[in-house]
Design a protein around this nucleic acid. Structure first.
Lengths: 252, 252
DNA sequence: GCGCGCAATTTGTCCAGACATAATCGCGAC
DNA sequence: GTCGCGATTATGTCTGGACAAATTGCGCGC
């Protein structure tokens, strides 16, 4: 017996035919039964082979319409994968946040959509690498009124605060929108960070959205000369997205 | 007959058991044959149900070791998906680039690794939304010597130039590293864009890496007050990553 | 000529059984 | 007590068959 299972080898042969144009893009493959006869395998084996090619984005199948070639090559999806919700909040975990202000505000600023009518909670904080030391990031977060009860439970320093909120709110995060901008720091930011007034900053803004609406909207200000937003996109074949890396990386 | 196929309903029931802790995380599920007996289905149906749960990242299966519960909830992978190489170069396609300078340089600047010894080609250009109109982006690209022959074929204005290079070089892109920084624009940039000397800029740097090394390294400078780098991460369940959106978005 | 409906075709779902392969666990030898 | 090998048992691969569902396209009626 060969090392590779039969459906695997058949998958390779069909892939080769697509690559060399025997089965052109947009064309229709022979029906399962015909392919079974040609390769002398059962329908299970052939379907397993075709399933792999569908997962790779090369084929598309529909009842009666048949199996059409979608792409000449396996899908090369460049993916910045963030595997878990925890990784989304990695920054919160890695660093130490000290709350310096907390108040109610009528609505968050643009570009946050004020989909929640009630008053919002605004929390300002400073991030440090260690509990002691100079802060490197000014954080301003907005939490809608409907979640304020949860948010207010943990005062003072809070590490995996966001993750707790997402978990407790029972609103699974459906989407995250991130926007990066740059410009002169607002006074609140540079003064809190102990920097001169003309400091150039980079602002990483994230909105964590559930089905209901905004869960958290956060603005993170960094000193531009000391900050690089780095992201790596890996070539990932097939359905199993590799362990992605990414996210903000401080740089000296 | 119900609307949903049988393996689908069984999948839901098993998922519910995992969610409610009947099958705890780290625990081992009953063997296929036992589950088949309990649900009174064939092994095919049961395996199809379990396959779905494996694809969702809730189960892990190994011969003899059995089926272990990996996660209590379906994997919520937040993915900025760029489906095709073309999308990576979307910016090049959408906009119009005019080459303003082209020369040989010994090596690209940091953070590009000079893995190619020969001289590099440096190409400066300006991006416009239309062929006429004010440029909004200064682009400086570095191409290693080994690809200079391909790069030099198309002079002047070039749209899907990068895509062509990646295609022609026969070096599939394995990884893309992107770094975003901000600061005062270098003189070459602000003067080329017709902006005052103290203009704050954002620089989006990308390195397209093949197995051999750097294919292209590009630096895109934008006027910070008019630029937002926007990225959306969607919740994507299962292997089929949805049609991702992302990439730089100009903002007024 | 146009539209509707039926039939043919293709993939989707499901069954029962068989053998292969791999990892674990226990037993035995040392 | 420890090491190693074999039996056990779980999933992995594969066959042949059957019916279901969906969509296309042809043909018939108007």
């Amino acid at each position: 017996m060969s090392a590779l299972p039969r459906y695997r080898r058949i998958m390779e042969r069909i892939r080769a035919r697509i690559a060399e144009g025997t089965y052109p893009v947009g064309g229709v493959l022979p029906a399962e039964t015909e392919l079974c006869a040609e390769f002398a395998v059962s329908r299970y084996t052939m379907r397993e082979a075709l399933r792999l090619l569908v997962e790779q984005g090369m084929l598309s199948r529909r009842q009666k319409a048949g199996t059409v070639v979608v792409s000449r090559h396996p899908r090369a999806a460049y993916v910045q994968s963030i595997g878990t919700v925890e990784e989304l909040f990695q920054h919160s975990v890695d660093t130490h946040l000290t709350v310096i202000d907390r108040r109610e505000v009528p609505a968050p600023p643009a570009p946050v959509p004020p989909d929640d009518q009630g008053p919002w909670h605004r929390i300002d904080g400073l991030r440090r690498t260690q509990a002691e030391g100079a802060p490197f990031c000014f954080n301003r977060s907005f939490i809608p009124g409907r979640l304020a009860g949860l948010a207010l439970e943990r005062p003072g320093s809070f590490g995996p605060f966001y993750a707790m909120l997402a978990e407790r709110a029972e609103e699974p995060i459906e989407q995250v929108v991130q926007e990066i901008t740059a410009g002169l720091m607002p006074e609140e930011v540079w003064s809190s960070l102990g920097l001169p007034p003309d400091t150039i900053g980079m602002c990483v803004h994230r909105r964590y959205l559930s089905r209901v609406g905004v869960l958290i909207a956060s603005f993170n200000w960094y000193e531009a000369s000391r900050f690089v937003y780095r992201m790596e996109l890996e070539r990932s074949r097939g359905p199993a997205a590799g362990p992605g890396r990414g996210g903000p990386t401080g740089a000296g």
